[in-house]
Amino acid sequence: MRAAFAYLGRGSWLARRDPRSILLAAFFFVLGAPQIRDSRHLALILAVAVGYYLLAGIPWRAVRRQWLLLVVVIGAVATINALITGGRSGGFADAETHVLLTLPPFGTEVSAEGISLIATQVLRFGAIAAVGFPVAYAIAPGDLGPALRQLGLGDRMPVMVDLTVRFIPTLSTEFGETIDAQRVRGFDPLRTGGSPMTRLRRLAPLFVPVTVGSLTGAEDTIDAMDLRAFGVGKRTWYRRLQMDTASRVVVGAFAVFLVVATFLNVTGQSEHYLLPFLVR
């Protein structure tokens, strides 16, 4: 499986927007969403986030696995948190909890508050992920650098980020080649067993050649950049992005969301909500 930022959203409504608006949207959203605690608010936000996500036209098949992992990991962390605290965290920190059942052997409490908190987290992270996906799939390759530049990150950092994205598929292919080359010599990359230390050492035939190879190759990259006068003075950026009205609307909408979320947080109007059907 080759790693690369596939431009899967090509041609979709969101992909036709200025990439800066996609980046800013995700950024504002990540700042705003943690300030919302009420799961009813979050349910609404998730619905809007999914609508936004659908505008990127990302084929479901290509990202199924990512979504699955996301839900499993968030669910697991949230559940463990609920079990450890018995639901006494967040807005319920000092609450009298409604214990639904007690698990042996330690008497771990499953409470209505705990479950409510799980729901909150799953809703929130689901929404954050939905708004984040277009960053990976709806920004044209090559536009990321100019977008970061025009967001004010200077001349060098955008080139560094662009270079990172550019190397990912190359290194991923090389990694695959290395795995192949070692398998031919009787090496089994999936062998398990042994302590973590033994297992790490056993992986040396994979990570050593890939790392060292990419570092020796880096000399060529450095030469190629030096020879084309990188970093010697002020840089022109040939690609210039234009914000159209729709892009401005996207940015504006997410900015408004951030302001509203901050307001709700400061005024205490979005506190954790106890799902009523759990407590009879």
Partner: peptide, 15 residues
């Protein structure tokens, strides 16, 4: 340079 893969530094051909 000798190895073409390493000296292409941008994501797209025009860049």
């Amino acid at each position: 340079l000798q190895d073409p893969a390493r000296q292409l530094v941008a994501s797209t051909v025009p860049a």
